[in-house]
Design a protein around this nucleic acid. Structure first.
Lengths: 343, 343
DNA sequence: GCCCGTGATGTAAGCGCTATCATTATACAA
DNA sequence: TTGTATAATGATAGCGCTTACATCACGGGC
């Protein structure tokens, strides 16, 4: 059924030369006579022969395949990172395989057996926020992994992680969003983050707080809440906030961790009869493909995740050990309105 | 910097045994004395040794890695298929790497060099609709690929493709949607397909037509249009249809190729001031995560793409050569309304 | 005392390549 | 003629494993 894969010996004997000569032709060496080259090439074509990268890998100790570890492919955020990384890898002649986050985050003896056994040439790990005790565990696993292959991190990378990494300047992003909302006249600006802790390693909270301070706005504790980063969590988070406050204290703007959360916020606001953007402005983050089709179309931060993924691959292959940030862009759609002052 | 990967020789000499004995321990053979086993295991632990799956693959002629070929990861439809396939592969101990559609669809000599050189244990190919002449080219490429490794197809698989495959019964799906809309009183039902041709291999057109016939509704040519399957294409397609018809002939319901197209339809209808679902009902397909958050929340067909991907992996590994269909489910949300008859 | 089965271990071939070195054949200078 | 540089090609040793097959020590049956 499947045709027995031809080997270099088959080609050699078919062409009447030694395997060394076939190898020379395969690798495009010059010291082969034209006549021989032609004979060999004909045999290769005849058998539809492709040299085994496995066998080549035995010698070169390189597999030309990379890995990417991420928590959840179905989250479009990660899908975009993957897509960018994978395209770049392909351009550089590498294949890319996906591994579950659990292959890193485990209490088992060797946290990365699959990756190490496969002798990948490198791996990109997308790090999510982790509680402090869990954090130590993961950091140890990452360091262990690094002993076997180059590792580049993406995402929520605390400053004390000694790894090359690509991420956004989250604090600066937050500051920009606050400033943008302030410029529209907002003063009651809520923040729905993704981390339960008081301070996340991304410093998004801090960026939010700094933004408020910069605008000389008071900080209101009940405007800062956290969720799991899903649409449901966003709906719950904003819903609880609204239900817990008298309408006159309702925020006029919400900064959402990401577009999923923003979608949930829209749902929560709609259920409570709020006019958007009239009574509530929302800013998301990630700029998902559906953002323009929400009601109202969602203003969001395009964080260039594909570029992030691509850049991570470049660092991985070049071996540069540095932390980089990528630019972002505020995409204005219809979800933020100027505040009408009370008469 | 990276620690030199230990080999079986290192372990053997460290434990004071032969490599054969180490190999026995690694593979859990029973004919090793407990004392020796312990010594060897200790050496393995000491070196953090992981046997090279590359070297193993040389012997077993199996890589325990699968490939998936798809046109565009960023399309959430394919992301879901990938996710399902990859999870299943992982469960069975296989890794999964992604390859671009172009590695199959090319005029170059060998259409699948990357796949073949990597000696994958099998590959899943997600097939999109192809124009007839292009179709022949791709079919040839697929057949060629099949000579080297097992291939399972997903998606738009014409009946004359001699490959194991997993797909939906698209025609039946369409019939169900038409019946559903008819049950709500709709008579002017439009269809926005993804294929320019008169008949696509999925027979979605045909399902649509049969549905109309089944309900004894007349077929109106201008209600059947085609697009590229994107949101923009959907917006253009419905927009052109509406602009080309007097309002009294406007359809009261639209069946969209997928949720992306449906999103575009919503935008087109909104721009023209149509009330949804009052004046226009829309049914999508794929049940994307954002469907519940659109305005109105989109009624859609959940085609269980993750299950499709998983099933394809099972066929691939088991080697069963059959074509299967997976079930689907109509998810009612708010985008379809009962028609109010003219008085 | 000798033979042989048995369990534990070692030896070595080989998977399909690359890379090093050895071996030719050819040409040209001494 | 002989020596020697040069180009083309072949022979072969691994890469890190698995897997026959060989070896060896030990013990029981005769």
């Amino acid at each position: 059924m499947q045709n027995e894969n031809a080997t270099i010996y088959d080609i050699a004997s078919d062409a009447g030369v030694s395997i060394a000569t076939v190898s020379r032709v395969l690798r495009g060496e010059t010291n082969v006579s034209p006549a021989t080259r032609e004979k060999v090439q004909a045999a290769i074509d005849r058998h539809n022969y492709r040299p085994s990268s496995i066998a080549r890998g035995m010698i070169s100790k390189t597999t030309h395949s990379l890995g990417i570890v991420l928590p959840k492919l179905l989250n479009p955020h990660y899908a975009m990172i993957f897509s960018g990384a994978y395209e770049e890898a392909r351009k550089m002649g590498y294949s890319m395989s996906l591994f579950p986050w659990s292959s890193i985050d485990t209490r088992a003896y060797d946290p990365a057996t699959m990756l190490v056994e496969r002798r990948l040439d490198g791996v990109i790990v997308c790090v999510e926020y982790l509680s402090p005790d869990h954090d130590g565990q993961v950091l140890a696993a990452l360091r262990e992994l690094k002993r076997f292959m180059p590792v580049v991190l993406i995402g929520c990378v605390p400053p004390w992680y000694d790894f090359p990494a690509v991420s956004n300047n989250d604090a600066a992003m937050m500051r920009q969003i606050v400033a943008y909302l302030v410029s529209l006249g907002h003063e009651k600006i809520a923040f729905i983050g993704g981390v339960q802790e008081d301070k996340d390693p991304l410093r998004r909270d801090e960026g939010y707080m700094e933004g408020l301070r910069g605008a000389r706005l008071p900080y209101t504790g009940s405007y800062r809440v956290y969720g799991k980063g899903t649409a449901e969590a966003g709906e719950t988070a904003l819903g609880n906030m609204l239900d817990g406050l008298k309408p006159e204290y309702w925020p006029t703007a919400v900064i959402a961790l990401n577009d999923l959360v923003a979608m949930g916020c829209q749902a929560a606001a709609r259920k409570r009869g709020l006019d958007m953007p009239g009574q509530l402005s929302i800013v998301g983050c990630d700029d998902l493909f559906c953002a323009p089709y929400l009601c109202p179309p969602l203003t969001s931060i395009n964080t260039h995740q594909q570029r992030t993924g691509a850049r991570a691959v470049q660092l991985l292959i070049s071996g540069e050990d540095k932390k980089e940030t990528v630019e972002w862009e505020l995409i204005e759609r219809g979800s933020c309105a100027r505040v009408i002052r009370d008469q």
